[in-house]
Design a protein around this nucleic acid. Structure first.
Lengths: 349, 349
DNA sequence: TTGAAAGCGCTAACAG
DNA sequence: CTGTTAGCGCTTTCAA
């Protein structure tokens, strides 16, 4: 015989609050938004009503009225890559602190998919976007970003049209890595990285070439594989490099997912690091640091990069300054660890 | 002398589309939403207008009218933990395919912060939430989730009140791990895991105890540290265990961030795995698989768990069935690798 | 099949 | 200081 109280189907609105507090909705709105010029008594009544009803303003409605959403999109290749997750987390925290919520999605390095994601974000009227576009050269992508009509910050991408960007010095890092290997006596140094339509890939290639030039040596382009950032590619290519007639004596993992694939292939082929082959990772990670032997790596601070991207975006969103695009560069450092040593030939001598 | 065309301040609305197509906004709306009963000519005109204006429906407005947002929140401890990122990615993909967007945030295992995040999600009127609550016993958290008024799916958490949940069999996995170590001859097996207010922690403790019981041995509770999931804790505790008068001969890493910390401490203390100390990880990862030696681990499929959580949520959101809460359980398997071996004492004998 | 019009929940003038 | 009201952009009756 319990009296079935009618289930609250819809959540309370500002009208409910106003009615309960016996004030106009205007007054209720003022209290909700913390205006000062409200009579103490009325304010108290409104607050009581809010508490009683467990009222929460409907952001969609506020957004519509105010013409902004305080929503930011983050679109990257794959959030499951630890370093990416790091970046996202840091950017997210910064944005949350500023009152923004974050919508994120993985583009899988697929232009079509990324276009769809941007389309969705566009419909959701995000106030800004942080993205590592899948390709720097895709006209549709560029147009899509432009037509968003909101600030965009690129992660490690160059754009002729120029949005703001945060850029990591992969070139310098790779150059130092290669010079280090050359100095150890390596002459067959392979570089595995992604397709050249994206900055981290082509910058690593440039760094590689710069190192050879700096040492007065000529590059053997056949040792550079600028093809893909996937683990599968890393496994296949590494295997090929190891079993070749003239095997590579050192390999550089030029991408986040390259290292795991490379290590797996080396393990399968039963090669020892660094006795049989030296290794340098183009990005640091827990895996690189804790592996046995620890892996010499190009390092930078993902968290800082994420926070910087978020700050750039916040500044654009807040002051609608039509300043020229800004780019924040992040240096890299080569952390020497046990995975890089003289090549086998040198050892014998 | 360029004629300064007035910059398009606001994006085109359905009114612009209707006007340009010379139809009513009702008709425009019907075309946009793919209704069949629209004259072919009008439909063509509307579509032309849409293309011309680069129109995209404003989701906020649609949401408000329809009373739903197609927004889902995902709140977990820390998206930067690789396994968590995996989970999120998989859940995200499933939700996107169903037309939902995902808002995610890291709670840092902090109840206050999580309450704030839920508050934000509540204001944004998410249609559902997936979360690994920071504590199962916190009344405010429970109330907060309940008052959201939308379906909630818990990740590896039990709730008396009962939401839907996806649950990993940490207990069974840990039990098998401990039995494996006992069978190898270990008698000083330490378990490092989080505080007992969260399922993965207390289930691991139960699994540990079950193993001892199964082997007819009594548990030394001083070897169980159910305190924290942080890396810092792992480093400190592992160090203590290694330098103790009666050191542990095996340690189980009962948490995602525990393993990295543990390995670091072992490295610092210059112990060898498994010669000086055996190790088992309570969750598999690239680090565990590629470490030298590879680390014996409790394994399950994060991707499947994420997809399952998303599916549970989708079902609840779509059919508003008042079915009893469902729980989807995921088995774990113990992957034997090189980090677990007989204890030093046994070796000498 | 189409158009007109009433809101969804909220903010921001504008009067008073 | 407070109440009234006109929309924000869209969907969905309700008539025609």
């Amino acid at each position: 015989m319990t009296k079935p109280r009618p289930p609250r189907k819809t959540r309370p609105t500002i009208v409910d609050v106003a009615r309960r507090a016996r004030v106009s909705i205007g007054t209720a709105s003022r209290v909700i938004n913390g205006y000062e010029n409200v009579d103490a008594d009325l304010k108290a009544r409104v607050n009581a009503a809010i508490a009683r009803l467990d009222y929460r303003p409907n952001t969609s409605a506020q957004d519509m009225r105010r013409g902004r959403t305080r929503l930011v999109g983050i679109v990257i290749r794959d959030i499951a890559v630890p370093q990416m997750a790091h970046f996202v987390k840091s950017a997210q925290d910064t944005l949350y602190s500023a009152g923004y919520s974050v919508l994120n999605a993985s583009s899988e390095n697929n232009v079509e998919r990324e276009l769809m994601l941007i389309e969705t974000l566009s419909q959701r009227r995000v106030d800004g976007l942080i993205t590592a576009v899948a390709s720097e050269h895709d006209a549709r992508l560029r147009k899509s970003l432009r037509s968003l009509g909101v600030p965009v910050v690129l992660l490690d991408r160059e754009e002729p049209d120029s949005f703001d960007a945060v850029l990591v010095d992969h070139r310098g890092g790779t150059q130092r890595a290669v010079e280090h290997l050359l100095d150890l006596g390596h002459r067959r140094i392979a570089l595995l990285t992604g397709k050249a339509d994206v900055r981290p890939a082509y910058e690593r290639v440039r760094g590689y070439e710069a190192a050879y030039k700096a040492r007065g040596l000529t590059v053997d382009r056949s040792l550079i594989s600028s093809e893909s950032f996937t683990e599968a590619f890393a496994i296949g290519k590494t295997t090929a490099l190891l079993v070749a007639a003239d095997p590579a004596t050192a390999i550089i993992a030029g991408g986040l997912a390259i290292l795991p694939g490379m290590l797996q292939a080396i393990h399968t082929q039963q090669r020892r690091v660094p006795e049989d082959v030296s290794i340098i990772s183009g990005s640091d990670s827990a895996l690189a640091a804790l592996f046995t032997p620890p892996i010499t790596s190009v390092r930078w601070d993902y968290g800082e990069v994420g926070a910087a991207a978020a700050r750039l975006l916040l500044e654009r969103m807040q002051q609608k300054t039509d300043l020229p695009p800004r780019r924040v560069a992040f240096p890299t450092e080569l952390v020497l660890r046990g995975s890089s040593a003289p090549p086998p030939s040198r050892r014998r001598s």
